[in-house]
């Protein structure tokens, strides 16, 4: 019997609903446990950032325009597909992680799926909880409603690879934002597998783009991009964080970073409706009250 050659997956970036190599044509080696080569990931460039932001921008209005109920349905479908590929995620986490046990990897995967479902449930509820009727001194109805801020750039934390990514991405897109995610530089492969589940669900093209590559190269053009409305810099180190915040300030971009409590990724404190609110703008409407 002949020896079967394994068919290895090419981990490509997910830009505007398509899996693409970098415009620059580059790649970099990704190593796992024991410095063993896992794969070559795409080394994205600033032009990939530009393309992903353009895709996110054009998808945003349509995504926010869907009913909250429909967004919830679509995101729940993502959880369904993640569940059906649980073993693959688990193996991916295990290969990438820092000597995690199989049980720990399975736990992380399950927690990540549960977190996705948790945020999905908020789709048609957060506006009720975070918005409301304000008592004002005059004959007006005064309503505050949270609305998605627009395009959000997410610098995903490095480790462990899956649950932080889900914890930062889900609250951003559930309200109708679109996201450009810079995957963990060290463990990018599981992010691409997540992209595959997004592509298999009914998430419209451009709602999530996932780029891989070197942080130092990708964060500045993302932070400085005029069409990015908010940034989650949870995955940045101190140097890059300060520089990105300066870049963001030049185009008046909101900057968010995970608190210490939120960084207890597996813990319940890492999930909160206020995280959805962090990527929303409050619209307040005054309406004259009749007699």
């Amino acid at each position: 019997m002949s020896i079967r050659l394994s068919v290895n997956k090419t981990y490509k970036q997910f830009i505007g609903g398509a899996f693409e190599r970098s415009e620059s044509g580059r790649s970099y080696p990704v190593v796992g446990v024991g410095d063993q080569l896992l794969a070559h990931a795409v080394q994205g460039s600033r032009k990939d950032v530009r393309d992903a932001v353009a895709a996110a921008r054009s998808a945003q209005e349509g995504w926010a325009g869907r009913t909250a109920y429909n967004r919830g349905q679509i995101l729940y479908r993502v959880a369904e597909v993640m569940e059906s590929r649980k073993d693959e995620f688990c193996a991916e986490v295990l290969r990438a992680g820092d000597g995690q046990t199989e049980a720990a990897a399975a736990e992380e995967t399950a927690a990540a799926i549960d977190r996705w479902v948790w945020y999905t449930g908020w789709a048609d509820k957060f506006a009720t909880v975070l918005g409301g009727v304000n008592p004002v001194a005059g004959p007006y109805f005064n309503l505050s409603v949270p609305e998605p801020t627009g395009v959000v750039g997410i610098v995903a934390p490095d480790e462990p690879p899956l649950i932080p990514l889900v914890s930062r991405l889900a609250p951003v897109i559930v309200s109708g934002n679109t996201a450009v995610v810079l995957a963990s530089e060290r463990c990018p492969l599981v992010a691409i597998t997540l992209a595959e589940t997004l592509a298999l669900s009914d998430v419209p093209s451009g709602v999530v783009s996932i780029l891989t590559g070197h942080r130092g190269e990708l964060v500045p053009p993302l932070a400085g991009h005029g069409a990015v409305d908010a940034l989650d810099l949870t995955g940045c180190d101190a140097d890059l964080d300060a520089d990105a915040a300066r870049q963001a300030a030049a185009t008046i971009t909101r900057v968010v970073s995970a608190s210490a409590a939120e960084r207890q990724w597996a813990h319940e404190a890492a999930q909160s409706p206020y995280l959805i609110d962090a990527f929303c703008e409050t619209k307040t409407v005054w309406h004259p009250k009749g007699r």
Binding site: R50, V53, R57, P221, G224, H225, G226, A227, A250, T251
Partner: peptide
């Protein structure tokens, strides 16, 4: 400026 712009501007 070395900065990508947004179309709305």
């Amino acid at each position: 400026d070395g900065r990508y712009q947004r179309r709305e501007d």
